[in-house]
Design a protein around this nucleic acid. Sequence first.
DNA 1: GGGGAGAGATGCCGC
DNA 2: GCGGCATTTCTCCCC
Lengths: 240, 240
Amino acid sequence: MEAELKEALQKNKAISLFANCSVRYSGRAESYLGAGDRFIIIKSDGTLLVHQPQGSAPVNYMKDGSAHDVILENGEMQLKSQNLALKEYLDITLHTIHSFHTAELTDGEKIQLMGSEKDMSDMIYNNPELISADFKPISREEQTKYGFLDVFGYDKDNNLVIIECKRYIADLKAVDQLERYVKKMKELRGINNIRGIIAAPKITPNAKDMLNNRGFEFCSLAPPNNFERYDKDQKKLGEY
Amino acid sequence: MEAELKEALQKNKAISLFANCSVRYSGRAESYLGAGDRFIIIKSDGTLLVHQPQGSAPVNYMKDGSAHDVILENGEMQLKSQNLALKEYLDITLHTIHSFHTAELTDGEKIQLMGSEKDMSDMIYNNPELISADFKPISREEQTKYGFLDVFGYDKDNNLVIIECKRYIADLKAVDQLERYVKKMKELRGINNIRGIIAAPKITPNAKDMLNNRGFEFCSLAPPNNFERYDKDQKKLGEY
DNA sequence: GGGGAGAGATGCCGC
DNA sequence: GCGGCATTTCTCCCC
């Protein structure tokens, strides 16, 4: 088994392991995980993931570019990973290997995603009346030294308007951001008539309070969903 | 193969698949991923992960509590997942299954982690001289309606001191946070003599500027690492 | 490579 | 359940 693992690693194959193991990590932080059954994945780019039987996030991991090797130590197999560039080290003691498989995977596809915050700022830029009848956008996704403005423009009274978009619920951090942008812009342009608007489907009560306190505004707006909605009339599983 | 997959799903086994597939998702957003080789995991809690051959993060996923089923449609196997509570739907078209394995995993262990922000605030609370000789901490991890104070206390001049810890590099958002806490505390207590301090190993130049602008302070401090450092004298892989 | 910000963020804890 | 926040966040984009 040890020889097979070593060979798979050397040939840079994708590896999948079900194993009872313990894990020790040292790098940005340090961690220890006692013995238990886990999935271990090693990808050809050096990425290593350790998954417990529950939950979405890996319990331990190493980033791409990591190097891996297997050694026998005190009669137990040790999977040792290191990423010298990041000074990160991961040691897995493999107590029992339930199964071990390899594959060579080819995949040139990139995911297409719809409904992001950028889609939202594009939507506002192209349909400014969604904010208000008199809003005239000037730019979107504006990268500046002092910040990154989702959309900004002018209203009919020639006030500068800065809009911060959130694809889901706007929270205190969203108000922080907007406040920082507005302050910096006032400072840079030496003006005081700048309106700040949060555009989001929802906002938390505390964020709404803070927004009002600061004299900013809220505009209820959801990101676009341009794919056909195929979740309408979805059958429940088992009805097929 | 279809029957085996169905059975494994019904028996709530952990499933590992190498397959050429396409993926469609609809829920919080919408996505499409064209055909390619991927690694698919289904956990007994309903979590589903789709991993491309590269990178740490899954390209698509479903959260725990999702239900899965396999059907044949136009001669191709479809793995259909849904999470009715979250209104999320994922369809995987399995063009070719390279390998398919199941396991029953038992794992009651929880990871122990050292070096978090909480460890840092504990360290400051117990060793306030790390901030300054005259700092007297009063509380830590204080929950308030407008925020969550890492550590706060008084200095020798009886000024209230609010400390925001960051385990790595403090950035603009960290200053936002500190500013929000200080402002709210001034408002709530009707006082003006509050010092704000960011404690972190590093701070970005822009964040430092903003910090100085707001009259706050920076204290260079790293989180504790109490495990024995076993990365010292690490051999390079291959030297074993 | 650093800085800034979004994410289908996830996970944790508190109310 | 929502809210607030850290994360070995990860990822992308821009400078």
